[in-house]
Simulated scan of single mutants.
Amino acid sequence: MGGLTRMCFAVSIGQRSAGRAARHMCMNADEEVERLCSVLSDCADVRTAVDAVDHSMRRAGVSEPASSAEYIVGRVVGANSRSALRRRLDQSIGGPEKELIGNLSMRRIVRREPVQYLVGNWDFHHITLNVRTPILIPRPETEELVELILKSETVRTSQACSFLDIGTGTGAILLAILKQRINATGVGIDINPEAVRLSRENSDLLDLSARTCFQQISVEEFIPETLFDVVASNPPYIPAKDMQALEREVKDHEDTNALHGGIDGMDVIRCILRRTSQLLKPGGDLWLEVDPSHPERIEALCRNDISLQELTFVEKHHDFRGFARFVHIRRRR
């Protein structure tokens, strides 16, 4: 048995030691990893390594196998984008690189770790963010939210908007906006201390620290020094009944508290709505990413709940898949 095969086989044996149920669930995946490691030992270049990983992930039923293979191999050979990887397809690879490819592939195939956590960073709306478990991975839908905010009248007509990002996570929403609006400033809050550390780290990497502040605090407890022009949030919004249907990549590795929004998915959303008048300037905008079942409920709350009488439901927007995903609310002047 070659060194690469021994390494991967030993790791998969360790994975199987977790218990009989885990052994049963992972048996086929472990066997596929062992087979992949054997194939990788014979790979001479990047192209054959990508093909080998892609093939094994397809056999193991991993979602998006081609992109997973490209990102994993790209990380190992120093290609920081898929286009850069394709320029290196004929580059030779050695034993240490094959071992690392095998190890990362094992984590993707057996443990179903998201490829974003494996490569350690991810592109989001013209910026690159460091990502690590369990902080929520920025999604394409949230890029659409950023676009809606940037195109809004409030942001387009103001020279120096102030932003609040509730549940900031990696800092994705706030940092993407500030990168496009050079005179804007913002605050990001999150109850997870690791999220606050990561968002500060990303702010430093993007040279935005002078215009940002990140705090570990809940939206209920946050007291702003001044009111904001725009409040934005991608809060926990998944209803309880939908949590078990999430893919393993999500429910096994991402923070449940950043996903689960309570019985109807609106626990944190209701809290944000109640606090909006104490956070947002008169005439300011609140933007939320929500579950498709929420826009009508939120509109009804704004219309009928006397505690929300300062808020006007402006409109809902659909995401690229056609789901009602975003709501725009304004505080009355």
Results as ranks from 00 to 15, higher is better:
V115T: 07
E141V: 05
G169P: 12
P65G: 09
P193Q: 03
R321W: 03
K316M: 05
G167E: 14
L286F: 10
A79R: 11
T142G: 12
G3S: 14
R16F: 06
T48S: 15
V290S: 07
N80W: 11
S63K: 11
R181S: 05
R297D: 01
L205R: 13
R332L: 07
G265R: 09
V196P: 04
K251V: 07
E147H: 10
S218Y: 00
A44E: 15
M57P: 09
H328V: 00
A195S: 08
R275I: 00
R6M: 10
V187E: 00
I223W: 02
V119C: 13
D165I: 00
G14N: 07
I263N: 06
W122F: 14
K151P: 12
K98H: 05
H125C: 15
I189K: 04
W287C: 01
C43E: 06
F222Y: 02
D242H: 04
D291F: 00
D291L: 04
P224H: 00
D285E: 10
I217M: 06
S12H: 02
I109F: 06
M106A: 14
R270W: 00
P96A: 09
H318K: 12
V33W: 02
A324G: 06
A210M: 12
D319I: 01
E144T: 11
L246V: 08
E194Q: 08
I298A: 03
P140L: 15
D267L: 05
V290E: 02
S293I: 01
I173T: 07
V115F: 03
S17I: 03
T133W: 11
R86E: 13
F313T: 02
E315R: 11
R35Q: 13
D242T: 05
G102Q: 08
R211V: 01
I173N: 10
R16E: 07
P65C: 13
A18C: 08
E64R: 07
L150C: 14
G262W: 01
W287T: 03
T133D: 14
G2T: 13
I13G: 07
N28C: 06
T256M: 14
D190Y: 00
N192C: 09
